[in-house]
Design a protein around this nucleic acid. Structure first.
Lengths: 173, 173, 173, 173
DNA sequence: GATGAATGAGGATTCATTCAT
DNA sequence: GATGAATGAATCCTCATTCAT
């Protein structure tokens, strides 16, 4: 991966995340990256190819986050770690998450299979904790966290810690 | 409002909701509406004007939903009603909600002020129920409902009822 | 001629004169005239028809100016009167002259035949005054006056009177 | 400057000069130049930018004409040279002059500052020749030359030489 | 690897004009 | 006489993509 290639990816991530994929022209990306427009196509074949390359990185990021949770065996500890995820999105990952969440609303934007293994682990945790309806609990938790991520990516409230505490209370953590 | 004007609004709502605002050309809208492209601009001035007209309807819808909750005085009853909102999105409103949620991710997409009165009411309800941190509780609930709406608008799970029950349990409703 | 018809003519004259015929849409004319766009076509058939109606008025104006000179028999007096024409363009005629001069540059913009009788009279005057080459003198004088009109219509200098005097001197008037 | 770029400039000059700027579509220019329409915008940014590029060349032409007069010190010689300008407009410059004169009638069409140095020189010449009102004489001469240029650009009379002689006589040249 | 010229299809928008009322 | 809805062609301009260098 050459330097210019990285510049293109960074520029595209930034612009796709802030202005949207459809509204970002390859021309804009090239200018932001300080690169000729043709080079984008040499490296990534098409605008879609460029997006795919970025999403590839995004999926790596997701897998890495999950891996950190996977190693936990204690169910309470696992839930706790999982809940904390959206509350500590790092500045450096911000654009990537924003892009991935925005793309959910695009047709073909979101690959649901990537979350399946995580769902299984969570279900297992809820079962160990003897929740009545583990499947529903998994869905509910995912919704909470999607809502939290959405909120933080869009307006960044000032009482994150309080919110996290309120959430943990509901799960007696 | 002539019939063709309504056709344009319907067609635009459908296409904006499913394909995205930026990816939907006015040409597509005109064809879907069975109308000349020029007519869109005569009635709505610009593509943005067309979107604004649709969102105006969306805000009406939101206000109406809130009004239904506003009349409730019992705090538990209010929370219950509020929570149920995303669980009973009607087929006829589906596209409108999808559009509004998708637009949140667009710059200038979302007007936060519209939720402020609702927040005040919820805070009051949590205070009456003697929750420790009402502000955080409001944010948390809003987040959850955003997550729920997102989930239902994007994949429509089959165990909605179980999820709602699990949620109510957490608030002892 | 109804009032609305006059409004249309006035509005069109103003806009054609200031913004150019091609750059003025019938929509703009209708708005300026406070009239529906369709009415323009009912009365004048087409945008070109509207222009023709205005130019008709312009030709009347020209003929009237010429008639004032025609009645003069003394050649010096005639030249003097003729020279003074562009120096005393009235505010009320300003737009009309501007339009007619601007249209010269448009293809088919200018009807040269309208000046022919005037040319004959001027030639006759120069002959009586025993100028060596009356034909050339006519052309020269017309150029002077076209140049003067152009100048006054475009920037209105402050020393008009001096300029007129200098001009008269050259013809010993 | 590539060959296609020059083709665009030539085509645009021709069409703008003959049909007018507003009435010439970029589509027509592209076809006349044998070029894709998009290329116009890649090279000149906008239709206005294309016009500006052409006018830039026009201003060069004007400056060059003036420079030829500037080197003359004898006042009579200078006036003579200046007067002859419109009488010897070269075929190759014809379109450019036509365009520049036509644009005077457009808003923002004409930059008057470009003539200021020339005016100063002419005033100086008239002063040396002890004309009574040099300022007025300058204006008068400019007007005449504008009128002459207009005439030659629009109908090209056949007795140019006679006209020039008549003019010189009036200035005792 | 990298550029910049070049393209053709499609973008939103404006235009003169028609027609039912 | 007068309106305003409606149209389809044309407007300027942008787009993703290709290609010679």
């Amino acid at each position: 991966m050459t330097e210019k290639q990285e510049n293109i990816l960074k520029a595209a991530l930034k612009l796709f995340a802030t202005q949207g994929y459809a509204s970002t022209s390859t021309n804009k990306v090239a200018k932001e990256a300080g690169v000729s427009e043709g080079l984008i196509f040499r490296h990534f074949e098409s605008k879609e190819g460029l997006l795919a390359a970025i999403l590839e990185m995004g999926h790596e990021l997701m897998k890495q986050k999950m891996a950190e949770i996977l190693i936990t065996s204690d169910p309470k500890e696992m839930l706790r770690k999982y809940m904390e995820l959206p509350f500590k999105i790092d500045q450096s990952e911000y654009e990537m998450w924003r892009l991935m969440y925005a793309l959910k609303w695009q047709t073909n934007g979101y690959d649901t299979t990537i979350m399946e293994p995580m769902k299984l682990l969570l279900k297992n945790a809820f079962e160990k904790l003897e929740y009545e309806n583990p499947d529903a609990e998994v869905e509910l938790l995912l919704m909470f966290l999607d809502g939290a991520a959405t909120s933080f990516l869009l307006h960044e409230p000032n009482n994150k810690q309080d919110i996290l505490n309120s959430l943990k209370l509901k799960y007696k953590l």
